[in-house]
Design a protein around this nucleic acid. Sequence first.
DNA 1: CCCCTATCCTGAGGGC
DNA 2: TGCCCTCAGGATAGGG
Length: 274
Amino acid sequence: MPELPEVETVARDLRTAVVGRRIMSVRLGHPKVMRFPVPEVLAAILPGRRVEAVTRSGKFILCALDGGEDLVFHLGMTGHLLVCDAQSEPARHTHLRALLDDGRELRYDDARRFGRILLGPRSTLEDSRVLPVLGVEPLSDDFTAVRLDEVLRSTTRTVKAALLDQRGVAGLGNIYVDEACHLAGVRPQRRCHTLTRAQRAALHAAIPAVLVSAIRNRGSSTDDYRDIWNARGSNQERLQVYGRGGRPCFRCGTPLKQATVAGRTTVWCHSCQR
DNA sequence: CCCCTATCCTGAGGGC
DNA sequence: TGCCCTCAGGATAGGG
């Protein structure tokens, strides 16, 4: 599932592929994926717009258009943004086809339709809460030890729940929360307020470490994730705990534990993680 | 405040 | 070969 490293990989590639390109025409699929505005308005606004920049915020991809709007994508569980030849056969669940002025097409497909497409000035989307307020970017200078302490120290919830909450730290999902906890030596079911200063510091170091490493490997294609060229990442081969319940910990050999924490399948090493 | 559950969805995989 | 069931989970809403 696309989390920060996968979304960042898509945003970087998209930047080189579509910045400066003009949208010539659009074709829409399932209306429920176009959350805001209604599909008819979206289809009316896009043609003629030029893409000026592509950025990432949490798990959102924002394409700034020359009209002042942002075309925003959230990939949900199974969303794919693809840049391909306009003549190629679209995937079964394609919800947006934007023909570009270079003969290629920007496509969004999403089998499960947990993703969403938004369009409007960013400030409008934020004010209307269509684009949620997100927490600190873990790869930015704002992600200080003090800032993470503020997220963790004030709550009694589990580390897993706190780190999955996009309002605290933006961009983490099930894979990288488990990976960061393993690297930091912290059990995901630990209550935040019981963490030692050293454990909070370990998490502060581990979170960017697992994300940077995953970006270097172009994301984890554990299942459905593909980049904009429909290619897999390779970080799934480097994951230490996600998807490895019952298998030996790479660090100590102890079989990894698996249980549901905060409503999510969670894997950890009972020996390495306290 | 926090937790759990249901909801939205399809496809993959297991059992028979 | 195929049917039924379960499971996967990002975000959100509602109940306890």
